[in-house]
Design a protein around this nucleic acid. Structure first.
Lengths: 227, 227
DNA sequence: CCGAGGGATACTGCATACAGTATTCCCGAG
DNA sequence: CTCGGGAATACTGTATGCAGTATCCCTCGG
């Protein structure tokens, strides 16, 4: 036995395969977000199972989870169809997202620490760097990380859970217009950081609200001219 | 064929049994809310299947949905355990609930109509009647109906969906203290109706916020003295 | 040529069977 | 008497099979 010689932290995680349905869920979610599976498309359990190399069972379970989270519509005795988001739904989603994020910003201001604002600044720098490099994926990812950091500061797990759900669906709409947006986005982030650092709850809330409303307006403009 | 003689609305719905997993889901949810299945309890698929007279499959699917909605914790290779809510979580839940409801009230004030306020008043009357009759279940049900009506006025389905989820979990905590609360609750509802009727968004938002904060305070007091 | 009816097809919903793994209890060594 | 190890147990995770039902196409009558 050589277990005694191993320092405790040396073995990171032992790479657990994890439940299969989980991986199927993530795989399908990726396919939906990247539009490989298009809105309205009929998802056949057998096909997906074959392509992913698993049986129907994990696929079924993944589809049902996707249904409860609003990514697909599961019509009885008919199967799963990729959800088709409407203009109205997108707007409502952005409204709710703004509400949740604004509250998170307010709470973050109440719980602010020096280390936290340092991390926020770092993410801001990284985001602007990615923007200059025209790396859209990095911009989106960093943006998500920034909001996640604010959410962590808010220290409300229920709020975080709901927001995470809403955020991912928002990114589904948002990614196409990430390029046109993002320009002023990081300036707004700077303002938000300043508010959080000084612990000004009201100002932080307002800053985040303004930020999300900007996004909402950008989406409206984009979708309005889009067709 | 006598189908031609039937007036279109005469046959209500033909009473479809509906998917089995759905009924299992509702049955289990009922058992959890009524505390028949207690927090922390290990739920064995085989047992539940036997008691409900179905196979493991629908039970599994129901449990996984309950997991994503936070009613049970699904530990890998171990099974489902009824979620044990903490004080902190309850407080966070009430905070988020207040946020969502306040926004709903604001939107309701923006979309108000005479018929809507009439319905709200009717629900208020019914609630006070139930309170005087000491019918706790009716009080809780009417309260839920009232909030649902406000939510419908808000006309934001995303908000409604999230709120419904949060609300049900809140009622899980709330039902035990419904008796002590509820006294002033309907007075606060009256104030809210007045604000909605006049289309005063700000006032409606504040009224709902005050209302939910009262509930939060009542819960804190109750749980604080409870042990 | 068009519409209705019937059968074939294909997919979902549920049940059952099998394999993998965590837990528990018992036994033996110290 | 206590602690470590190992087998037995029980439950979950996954795969397969079967029945019910909606859809589609082809055919037949008008």
């Amino acid at each position: 036995m050589l277990s005694t010689e191993l320092p405790k932290g040396a073995v990171p995680k032992l790479e657990r395969p994890g439940p299969l349905r989980e991986r199927v869920y993530e795989a399908l979610l990726e396919l939906i977000i990247t539009r490989v599976l298009q809105p309205g498309q009929h998802l056949v359990e057998t096909e997906l199972a074959g392509q992913l190399g698993v049986s129907r069972q994990p696929v079924r379970e993944a589809l049902q989870r996707l249904d409860t989270e609003g990514w697909v519509d599961l019509r009885p005795a008919q199967g799963a169809f990729v959800h088709e988001p409407t203009e109205q739904e997108a707007d409502q989603l952005l409204a709710v997202r703004g509400l949740l994020e604004a509250e998170a910003a307010r709470l973050a201001a109440a719980n602010t620490t020096p280390e936290a604002s340092k991390r926020l600044r770092a993410l801001c720098d990284e985001g602007e760097r990615a923007l200059r490099a025209d790396d859209i994926d990095a911009v989106v990812a960093t943006n998500a990380a920034f909001h996640a950091q604010v959410m962590e500061l808010a220290a409300n797990s229920v709020l975080a859970e709901l927001s995470a759900q809403v955020d991912r669906r928002m990114r589904w709409f948002y990614t196409p217009i990430a390029r046109t947006r993002g320009a002023h986005s990081w300036d707004e982030h700077r303002e938000l950081i300043a508010a959080i650092e000084t612990g000004d709850e009201e100002r932080a809330q307002q800053a985040m609200r303004a930020h999300t409303e900007q996004t909402r307006a950008a989406y409206r403009e984009h979708s309005g001219s889009g067709h």
